[in-house]
Simulated scan of single mutants.
Amino acid sequence: MSEHSTELKQTPLHALHLELGAKMVPFAGYSMPVQYPMGVMAEHLHTRAHAGLFDVSHMGQVILTPKHDMAALEAGLEALMPVAVSGLAEGRQRYGMFTNAQGGILDDLMFANRGDHLFMVVNAACKAEDIAHMKAHLADVAQVQPVTDRALLALQGPQAETALAALVPDVRAMRFMDVLSVDTLFGALWISRSGYTGEDGFEISVPATTVVDFARLLLDRPEVAAIGLGARDSLRLEAGLCLYGHDIDTGTSPVQAGLVWGIQKSRRTGGAREGGFPGADCILAELADGPAQLRVGLHPQTRAPMREGTEIWDASEGGQKIGCVTSGGFGPSLGAPIAMGYVDSGHASTGTPLWGEVRGKRLPVTVCDLPFRPSTYKR
């Protein structure tokens, strides 16, 4: 797709972004706000201190309705990813990922049990392929319905609950990864207590016809500011969260990516539902023996950022290339550059001194724990 704005899709909030003075950029085929007049740094810090409102309507929303019963649907979806679907309680959400035969990640996603169906949110750049993948593999057990008449907002930050509860009081009782459907003056709101910033917050699916009015009411609150993709990226990097197509892709496994926490014990070696997903042999072998490379946090020891593509070298005489940065930049909450990427497993221990090659010069960098900043989810 050309990046000319006339050929880009627009979210239902496009006119509001322009009214608010957003700088619009092409992203995953959409015209999206990268920042507002406040600027990326201030938007990032506002979200950490108060509450930020993000338009994430470019993401894919999908409903999976069982053709027979929920058990068959859950088993079918479980056959596509190394994550336990069966047993997820009604009103709860879980992180998942589709894998390929080599154990690589086709996409990462969220799915929720809403009683008589599953609701899923997938990445914008992958949604067409994800929907085709599910239609091909779940044809006997589910109707796969892309949601095309709703927008998606994310309200993130320590004051997100205060802001949203003023309009939807029921959200106060929600905890991290709860989901709720509430009938309001704006229509049915589908709410999850989750997000992509490391902060407490919510993702809210809103009818496209009412989302502008709903967003305006939130933005009228003093604690809420509109936040663009620039701050969304720096916030998720500080939280140590992966960006699909950068930190994870079809060539990285969940084990290499440090996403083992997302693979429940029932799907691992010795579990009651061990394997049975694409790439199981590769993934279970890595769980048992360890992968060749691991995703790690990286602390540059100078003020120079180490951005995506920066080669990582070991500290031996002459040096050997042992990895690469997949995400990097400045961490506004930390006041320092941060990065993450993949290094050979023998160099992945916290505190290991390495070198990053920036503009032809090797600069010191140290392996560190992820996340860079503790998350503040409401458990």
Rank of each mutant, 00 (worst) to 15 (best):
R172L: 06
R172K: 14
A173P: 00
A173K: 14
A173G: 04
A173L: 10
A173Q: 15
M174D: 00
M174W: 03
R175T: 06
R175G: 10
R175F: 06
F176M: 10
F176S: 12
M177Q: 07
M177A: 07
M177V: 00
M177Y: 10
M177L: 11
D178N: 14
D178M: 05
D178K: 01
D178P: 00
V179L: 07
V179D: 14
V179H: 07
L180T: 06
L180F: 04
L180E: 01
S181E: 11
S181K: 04
V182R: 14
V182D: 12
V182Q: 15
D183W: 04
D183E: 15
D183P: 01
D183T: 12
T184F: 11
T184K: 13
L185C: 06
L185E: 14
L185T: 07
G187H: 08
G187Q: 10
G187I: 05
G187E: 13
A188R: 13
A188V: 09
A188T: 13
W190C: 07
W190G: 12
W190D: 14
W190E: 13
W190F: 07
I191A: 15
I191D: 14
I191Y: 09
I191G: 11
I191C: 12
S192V: 02
R193V: 00
S194E: 10
G195S: 11
G195K: 13
G195F: 09
G195A: 15
G195M: 10
Y196M: 10
T197M: 08
T197V: 03
T197L: 12
G198P: 07
G198D: 07
D200H: 07
D200W: 01
G201P: 10
F202R: 08
F202N: 13
F202G: 12
E203H: 10
E203R: 05
E203Y: 05
E203I: 04
I204C: 06
I204P: 09
I204Q: 05
I204Y: 03
S205R: 01
S205W: 03
S205V: 01
S205Y: 01
V206G: 05
P207S: 02
P207V: 05
P207K: 01
P207Q: 05
P207N: 02
A208L: 05
A208Q: 14
A208S: 15
T209D: 15
T209P: 05
T209F: 01
T210L: 02
T210P: 01
T210G: 04
T210E: 04
V212C: 15
V212F: 02
D213M: 04
D213V: 01
F214K: 09
F214M: 09
F214R: 09
F214L: 11
F214E: 08
A215R: 03
A215K: 09
A215F: 02
A215L: 06
A215S: 15
R216I: 06
R216N: 12
R216D: 08
L217E: 15
L218A: 09
L219G: 01
L219R: 12
